[in-house]
Nucleic acid binder design. Sequence first.
DNA 1: GTCATTTGTCCGCATAGCGAACAAATAGGG
DNA 2: CCCTATTTGTTCGCTATGCGGACAAATGAC
Lengths: 252, 252
Amino acid sequence: MKVNDRDFVGAMGKGLAVIEAFDASSQRMTLSEVARKTGLTRPTARRYLLSLTRLRYAETDGKHFWLTHRVLRLGHAFLSSSPLPKSIQPVLDQLAEGTKEAASLSTMDGPEIVFLASSVAPRMMAATINVGLHLPAYCTASGRILLASLSEAAIERLLRAAVSRKFTPKTRTSRQELLKEIRNARRNAYAVNDEELEIGVRSIAVAVAVPQLQKNFAMAVSVHAGRMSVTEMVARILPKLQSGKRSLEQVL
Amino acid sequence: MKVNDRDFVGAMGKGLAVIEAFDASSQRMTLSEVARKTGLTRPTARRYLLSLTRLRYAETDGKHFWLTHRVLRLGHAFLSSSPLPKSIQPVLDQLAEGTKEAASLSTMDGPEIVFLASSVAPRMMAATINVGLHLPAYCTASGRILLASLSEAAIERLLRAAVSRKFTPKTRTSRQELLKEIRNARRNAYAVNDEELEIGVRSIAVAVAVPQLQKNFAMAVSVHAGRMSVTEMVARILPKLQSGKRSLEQVL
DNA sequence: GTCATTTGTCCGCATAGCGAACAAATAGGG
DNA sequence: CCCTATTTGTTCGCTATGCGGACAAATGAC
């Protein structure tokens, strides 16, 4: 496959950036807001917004623009074309059912993790883990167990790439502390997150290697902090995660 | 807002079409396959695939291309920017828990329905309803209750637009039968689907109007056919759907 | 009401990306 | 196994596309 510099369509990246500009804090935006958020010029942002609107991926009232459910077709294209999310679902469901908590599968995407699948036991007032959600790796259990599988150099690079935001008073942000957490994770073969992302939520994660995809995944359970301590979480959840991991590696 | 024909970026539609070309039956494709499936010329398909690869939305082994989890960012942009999926989730969870079956929310997209949110009670070997999944309206309970809210002319048009495929021996496909089902749905304020999409799955749906969005939605529960008859489904599930509908309309 | 600032639109020009044409790879037939 | 037919992948000249500077309209400040 010979790839030439002329074989790139710049428009694609711009259009996708415009879609990604929308999030919980920017549900409806004027073209100027989109331009600012994406770094595009105003005329450019305008053209892309109008194009998305024409294609029914967005709607407008003449002033503000917002995404439509048609955008879901895109995510669905991945979910239905990728074998992993499908085979993992029963395992996560069982895990969620067995623990009465929220189970998820995620993987590394730059310095962040992405959720590929999740299952919540309906009893919890679920801190809904949305498929496609990106979170910083450094302050999540899943992120730490994924980082633990990388070389020291790669870890350094990714920790530096992420701005270490203090989401809660308990968030670890110093390079020292984070490296220690990651080394612990590597030694124990599990990682934890104790209310570092959100007060009231603790998580525990193990790694799942998928040789066919040459990629690592993290399987995690998030628990309501009021329901168990970190020690209890390790004692009660970890064995279930490990057996889930075994049944998953069986399937794959 | 003045919209000029020059304000459209053709590249956007092509790029998005390339992403949407991937699905369960086409997980990995050569550029020629993508060209055929999208109707683009081969050089064009190539440029878009290479661009997507460069942007990390796709990967390639030099011959085949496939999507990466990065495209989930797009769907997530909608899910996190749209208030509806978030406020509906607890209602669906409660419905799934109360019935021990699968609950979903969907809306009309052309002659199809799209799932915006879902919740499965982990006990069922869930016919996983993926968010973003599109199904023909004519052979789903949700689709029929949504069609029922339209004018006769609009219904005619949408039924004609959809190719009436016989998914199972029980699938209703004639215009006559379908119109009858839809009129029944309108009169009863609920619609059913009795193994017409998949043997072993029955569903029941009610409509939820959201005036702020000027749009109708369908809330449905799908049950394992072995667990209840259509009559039982109406008797046992419909009241729960109706109360879910009330609590949803409260929230909105 | 006037001016300053921000937001939205137009249009001439450069170039990005189109596809006809060519080349390489694969399949089929004797 | 070689030769041919067909399919798949790549190049490159030309032109339509889409860029952004410049202008206009709207909003806000005083």
